[in-house]
Amino acid sequence: MNNSLTIRAFNERFAVLLPVRAIWVLLALVAAIAIVVIWSLMTGSYPLTVTQVIEILRNAPDGKTGTTIVWEFRFPRAVVSVMVGALLALSGATLQNVTRNPLADPSLVGVSQGASFAVVFLTILMPEVGYYYRPLYAFGGALAVAALIQWISVRKTDGATMRFILTGVGVAAFISAGTSAMLTYGDIDRAMTALAWLAGSVHTSNWSDVWITSVCFALLLPVLLWASRPMAAMRMGPDAATGLGVNVKWGRIGLITLSVALAAIAVSAVGPLGFVGLIAPHVTRRLVHAGVGLHLAITAAVGGLLVASADLIGRAAFAPVQIPAGIITAVVGVPIFIWLILRQNEKGEL
């Protein structure tokens, strides 16, 4: 085949077939992310030029206002938004592959709500608990809710997607009522902090967010790579997956837990950014056809690009007023979601 590249290593024990087009797409996306990041480093109430930004990034000259602004405020923010986008996109892709449901999104099936509930609980009722425990709490809350939805919606005969989604909607309403109760009756200042966080905002991101997120990301990435093979099998349905030697029950549980963990880290850092996990895998599917591994990499890049651009737009479009990235992703994501509803196939198997 001309349009793909084969890499063989370790005496033919390791071989990958890489479609050239997919690699080009990936490179283009990475370049686009770099451009958006540099652009967002330039934009703001203290504008900088490209050369200044590159100079600051390379040498970090001491004592200049630009250095402080870029290194303390804009750069961590840009890095966090790219990473969070990648995490959410991977979470959405995993969820869609496992549930075989193109409408699955962490915010639709209660994962974001569970994580939000845990974090709002922490922010309002136990402000003395350290900031570093946020991902842990978010993960706990998200996992509990995801398990609850699975447990309610699973029946022996089939894993009907419809019941799964509707149960998610119901459970999400229940959890959101709890979250609003805390927002309504908590101390107004803490509630305002929690509200800003809930709108999905990266503006408070600092280097400790970058560290927490990247450490968690680094821990989960190998797991995800290892899981990409069973995921590829499960995408073809439970019967085919069983035939290919995958333990479907445990594969399902493991992959959903993984997806929940990815979303929970992202949510704990910047709040529930809706619809990124929904859109990114679809955009990727339109762009290229690739194997699961490369597909995941491109999905992550698309997600990073989406959130970084959403943040840039939110900051720049109505300056000096800042619109949280989560509001931008929802406003962009909902029409896409509706479009997906409109073109699902008729069988009810979404």
Binding site: L166, A199, G274, I327, V331
Partner: peptide, 22 residues
């Protein structure tokens, strides 16, 4: 169908909720 009605309801709600919080 019930599913499409509720999904479109959820989508419209999410959209409006985002603008409300903005």
């Amino acid at each position: 169908r019930p599913l499409t009605l509720i999904l479109s309801g959820a989508a419209v709600t999410a959209f409006l909720a985002a603008i409300i919080s903005g």
